[in-house]
Design a protein around this nucleic acid. Structure first.
Lengths: 343, 343
DNA sequence: TTGAAAGCGGTACCAA
DNA sequence: TTGGTACCGCTTTCAA
């Protein structure tokens, strides 16, 4: 590979001029710039990344702590990662994956302090997350995808669970439903302090109570069998239920099976609204589910942009839309409640 | 951050001894090594990655060309990526994502020549892939996930489509089926030279002919509506069909809807076998689909290991299992064919 | 077993 | 507008 020195020699300029021509950090006459560019083209010059990083103390790498290998949130994470990688790339950065969890703050800090990345995106943030203090203390710039309980002075982008659950309840009450249950993520996730489980539950309960309705929610493992059992449990608790909001992709399929098994047709007898889902899941059901899609791509883009803002101007974009709702995607699984047999 | 020089001073040894203590590239007495380790601990020393890369000419980074943001890349890619990242990490490497497609060989080569990565994993490989020649000519080590038509002297890991389709046909004929159709990926993918579409079609046809059966396959967009139409078309072509093998996740759901609409119960009247699927899709159907899972995690691990072998000993692991079958996962969508009404 | 020193290929400051 | 050069922090060869 040709070096900058080679280019300088061929273009009859000094090494530093070549560097400045590339970085535009100081004016270079258009004539010499042209000569330099010709020389670079002739030599097929490519700027050495390691040397650049060493001299400039910036790796131009952003790290994404990648959630452990689960089947859980497939589509959304894919969308998120693809979007984050593209956004980083568009800004001249690269995205690396760090397969490290919330319980490994030390490893994350160490990698950052080795200069492996200029900043870190934290996924699967918990309400109390040990990574926050570790990175803050070490002076490592980071943005959370999700958010802790306390977010003062922290950079983050997240789904607006309050808004999403409110919209979900509004959609169903707008159709006339009053007895609406909520099928949530697992008890384990709640015990871990996994924020979406907790925020969605609160948001749903608030939305119900604000309308004088009583919330009825259940925690459920990510498994069709568990979903079926949970749906049965909900119906046992309140046989007059006419709708369910689900935030648990796999369990939703079990829930619809149970509804059909109990002779409740969707959406004629019962409405199902699947929220915070990934693309495609709605279509995998018959009738296709009405869903509220998690904005994975937007989160990826905004997360990277927030982190880059932190790196370049060291400021929180306080006013930006850092809380995104999940837009409603009409499907065939919600409709008016059935007319009671005995009015 | 403390430097190696700081550590050396504190431990009363030379800079080079610290380096050797870390790399084990030459013996260091256990006493001085202990002093060095104490000094490193005291200073919280972290080796600077850029300096290391510059001096050693190895970035310790592997690049993964990440498929463009589509809906198609569901669970399999997630599994693959997570596994690749973990394997890389376990070997002291990092995985970066390059959101570059098969039509951008130049960009991939340039990044590699900047030293951004020591090697490249190519995803979504086509039968004729321009990246192969570009990287080969530039001397950039790479491993294909998938494979081109010609694979001599190339490193790759791939799904064994011949074996998988053979196993699929064997499973169904073993149950007694004879009229078995194949619902494939889209015509567009085939036109692009997307290898799985082509190899699976050939494998299916071979497996059928080897048994004296006639293949009946159809290309189908990744869409439930298209899947439904394709299933209708297959049934119109041969009303005596009793089973279908599908390699098109979203379309499969449309196909089952069409079967039910035509009064064919699964698996009593008709068997559905979904191959090269990702985890979870089987469970999203009722009855749960019998599937053959794409070995995403294994491909990720083996792909990284193959690339690392190329980097460290520069040799193709010729004998290794680079073609992996998709294991059969029993579900509830396959069974014996119905007994003909008129024997 | 250890030390000294020459790079690795750029960035960015100081001069001219 | 351009040139000269002191680093950036480590790897690795040569000597002791």
């Amino acid at each position: 590979m040709a070096t900058m020195q080679d280019v300088a020699r061929l273009a009859n300029v000094s090494l530093s001029t070549v560097s400045y021509a590339l970085s535009d950090a100081r004016p270079v006459s258009s004539r010499t710039k042209a000569r330099i560019e010709a020389a670079m083209a002739e030599l097929g010059f490519q700027r050495n990344a390691a040397a650049r990083s060493l001299a400039s103390r910036r790796s131009h790498v952003l790290a994404l702590t990648y959630p452990a290998m689960q089947q859980g949130l497939g589509g959304t994470v894919s969308e998120f990662v693809a979007s984050a990688a593209e956004t980083a790339s568009a800004h001249g950065y690269q995205l690396v994956l760090w397969p490290l969890g919330a319980n490994q703050p030390g490893e994350i800090r160490d990698l950052a302090q080795q200069g492996q990345a200029d900043g870190v995106l934290l996924m699967e943030v918990r309400l109390e997350d040990p990574r926050v203090e570790a990175l803050r203390a070490a002076g490592v710039p980071f943005t959370m995808i999700g958010r802790t309980a306390q977010v003062a002075d922290l950079s983050y982008v997240d789904i607006d669970f309050a808004r999403t659950t409110e919209d979900a309840v509004a959609h169903l009450t707008g159709l006339g439903h009053e007895r609406i249950a909520f099928l949530n993520h697992s008890a384990a996730s709640r015990a871990d302090g996994y924020a979406p489980t907790i925020r969605a539950d609160e948001g749903y309960a608030d939305a119900m109570r604000a309308r004088g309705l009583s919330p009825e929610s259940i925690l459920c493992d990510e498994d069709p069998g568990a979903g079926r059992a949970a749906m049965a449990e909900l119906l046992a608790r309140d046989p007059r239920l006419t709708a369910v909001i689900t935030m648990n992709e796999i369990a939703t399929f079990g829930a619809t099976v149970e509804l059909q098994a109990q002779g409740r047709q969707i959406p004629r007898d019962f409405s199902v609204l699947s929220i915070v889902t990934s693309p495609g899941v709605g279509a995998m059901s018959n009738p296709p589910l009405t869903t509220m899609h998690a904005p994975g791509a937007d989160l990826g883009r905004l997360g990277v942009e927030a982190l880059l803002a932190l790196l370049t101007v060291n400021e929180l974009p306080a006013v930006d839309p850092v809380l995104l709702p999940c837009p409603l995607e009409p499907g065939g699984s919600t409709g008016p409640p059935p007319v009671p047999l005995t009015p």
